[in-house]
């Protein structure tokens, strides 16, 4: 991967350490309203004076609203960025003011519990929608250990919500690059009937483990790792999306369950129906919640 491409796939925060601290102070002094207020000038600055960042919103928005140009497109970029800034504020609020500062509606609890009762563990597949970290704080209801498959970049100043209180994370973080330990951890967790959470719309790792499938009318790249793990271990995949439903409320909703058959044919194409199933759920989500999709990577790149 070229350096330019590698940067474009970076998940590091665009803000500096002092900018993050400014918002943390605003939350402590004035709560959500004050922090939300400051999102207007900050997002306005980025949209007007950082065309590179505005362009990053266009990868998705240009496909979601292909008919919009000029001012309408600028307004879309502003709205999406403002919505994202507020999700980041919400995430910090959960860390600073505690999980009770947000209401998370989790109606699919019983369905998830039934999947866990099958004894093969559970792969929770999320996407860059809503505020998955804040919503994940409600998974303690399931009373099962949660393992998060996440690749964190060195030097990223953006804090996970539990890091505000310097507490131990409520989930175990598995670094997929830590081989072969990560593999042993994943298989062990699922065989113990625990939960492994992965992102279904973020590619990392080897180029082999990705497929191109249509998303919003054009071929986009999606990872196949979770489906491979499901095929190897027999764990079902619950596609769970977070959605902001009000100033201080989120819903954690089960979009669907994907059952991957044990692998007979290891060619990636055998996993295509499962990727398509996930993308269908994701497409339905972004059609209903157009300003809650925060994957700013160019997943449509050739």
């Amino acid at each position: 991967m070229t350096e330019k491409k590698a940067r474009s796939w970076s998940s590091r925060s665009i803000a500096s350490r002092w900018q993050h601290r400014f918002f943390y102070a605003a939350i402590r002094l004035g709560g959500r309203r004050l922090a939300y207020f400051f999102t207007y000038p900050v997002v306005g600055y980025y949209m007007l004076f950082r065309p590179d960042l505005r362009r990053r919103t266009r990868h998705y928005l240009g496909r979601r609203f292909p008919e919009r140009f000029g001012l309408a497109a600028f307004a879309d970029s502003f709205r999406l960025s403002l919505s994202f800034a507020r999700v980041l504020v919400d995430r910090a609020i959960v860390g600073i003011l505690g999980p009770d500062s947000l209401d998370v509606q989790f109606d699919s609890y019983e369905q998830i519990q039934k999947l866990l009762d099958q004894g093969s563990g559970l792969i929770l597949m999320n996407a860059h929608v809503g505020c998955w970290q804040a919503s994940m704080s409600s998974l303690h209801m399931l009373q099962r250990p949660v393992h998060l498959l996440i690749k964190r970049e060195p030097g990223d100043v953006d804090r996970h919500y539990h890091e505000h209180q310097k507490e131990a994370p409520p989930y175990n973080i598995i670094d997929p690059d830590n081989l072969p330990a990560s593999a042993v951890e994943i298989v062990g967790a699922l065989q113990r009937g625990e939960i492994v959470s992965v992102m279904g719309d973020r590619v990392f790792g080897n180029d082999r483990n990705r497929l191109r499938v249509p998303f919003l009318g054009q071929e986009a790249i999606f990872p196949v790792g979770a489906y491979k793990i499901a095929a190897a271990t027999g764990a079902p995949i619950a596609v769970l999306f977070s959605r902001k439903t009000g100033p201080r409320s989120y819903a954690l909703e089960l979009a669907g369950v994907i059952h991957v058959k044990p692998a007979e044919d290891r060619h990636l194409d055998s996993l295509r129906p499962y990727v398509l199933q996930f993308v269908q759920y994701l497409e339905e989500y972004v059609r209903n919640n157009p300003y809650q999709f925060y994957n700013f990577h160019d997943i449509w790149q050739k």
Partner: peptide, 10 residues
Amino acid sequence: DSLDAVELVV
């Protein structure tokens, strides 16, 4: 790679 490793364990 990492996914091969998962399969390897199984």
